[in-house]
Computed example of a mutant assay.
Amino acid sequence: MENAAPAIATPSLPKKPSPSFRLRNGSLNALRLRRVFDLFDRNGDGEITLDEMASALDALGLGADRSGLEAAVGGYIPAGAAGLRFEDFESLHRALGDALFGPIAEEVPEEDDEEGDMKEAFRVFDEDGDGFISAAELQAVLKKLGLPEARSLASVQEMICNVDRNCDGRVDFGEFKNMMQGITVWGA
C-alpha cells in the first residue's frame, strides 16, 4: 500500500479545538491553508522542512519536540524531498481534522454563495462564537498569522474602530461584511 496515508495518532489537546480548524467551505479552507503554508515556508522554496515547522510551532507557543514532530509529519514528506509540499501539507491537515473531528460527510453540500463564504471567514475571527469580533480576538488571529499589527492592542483597537459603525467596540457580521465588500483582491 504505497499510496496509503500514514497513520495519525489522535492528538491530546488541553482545550477543545477551534471550530475554524476545518471550515465547511472547501475553497475558503484551501485559501486559509495556503496562507498558513506560506507563513511556515520561511524561505519560500515551496516546501516546509521539519525545522521550519518546528520554528513556526515554537513561535505559536506550542513547543515542538523535534523527534515527535518527525514521527508525526515524516510520513507525509515524499521520498527525496526536503519537506512538505503544499499537497502534502493538505493531506496532513485533512488527516489531523479526521483524527480530531471525524471524517467529513460527503453528502454535506458546500455553500457556494458569497454570503456563506463571508460567514465562514467571520467564524475564523470570532473565536468564541458570540457573533462579534473583539479586539482581543482580532489580535489573537493576527498573532497566529505572525503579523506585526498584533503587537499593539491600540493598533488592533484602531482597526476595529475603522469598521465599527455602531461604536460598540467590536465588529458584528454586518460590519465585517461591509468591510470585506470594500476590499479589492489584487491578482485574483
Rank of each mutant, 00 (worst) to 15 (best):
A188I: 06
L153D: 01
K15S: 15
D65W: 10
D88W: 07
L92I: 08
P103V: 12
F132P: 02
V73D: 03
E111F: 03
I104A: 12
P17Q: 07
L96P: 11
A188H: 13
L142V: 04
I160L: 09
D126Q: 00
L92K: 02
H93K: 12
M180T: 05
C161H: 13
G129F: 10
S152Y: 04
A71W: 02
R42M: 14
M159K: 08
N178Y: 12
G97W: 08
G75Q: 03
F40N: 04
G146E: 09
A81F: 06
E127L: 14
L50G: 07
L33R: 05
L60D: 12
A5Q: 09
P14G: 14
M1V: 08
L31Q: 05
A121E: 00
D45S: 11
K16F: 12
A5N: 09
E107C: 11
A54Y: 11
E137R: 04
P103N: 10
R35M: 10
G102P: 14
N162Y: 06
D172W: 02
L57N: 03
V163F: 13
E115L: 12
V141M: 12
G74T: 06
F122N: 04
N43H: 01
A64I: 11
G46S: 07
G26R: 12
A72P: 04
P11G: 01
Q181S: 11
K15E: 15
G131A: 10
S152R: 00
D172L: 07
A105W: 10
V36Q: 00
I160Y: 01
V73S: 00
S91R: 06
T184K: 08
E52N: 09
L31T: 05
D164S: 08
V36L: 15
E47N: 10
G146D: 02
S20D: 15
T49P: 02
G174T: 11
G74W: 06
F101P: 15
D117A: 10
Q139G: 01
L138A: 01
Q181L: 13
S91E: 09
G75H: 05
L60A: 09
M180D: 07
N162I: 06
R22I: 13
M1A: 13
L145N: 05
N3M: 14
S12E: 15
D113T: 06
P6E: 08
P6Y: 02
A136Y: 00
D88A: 06
A121F: 05
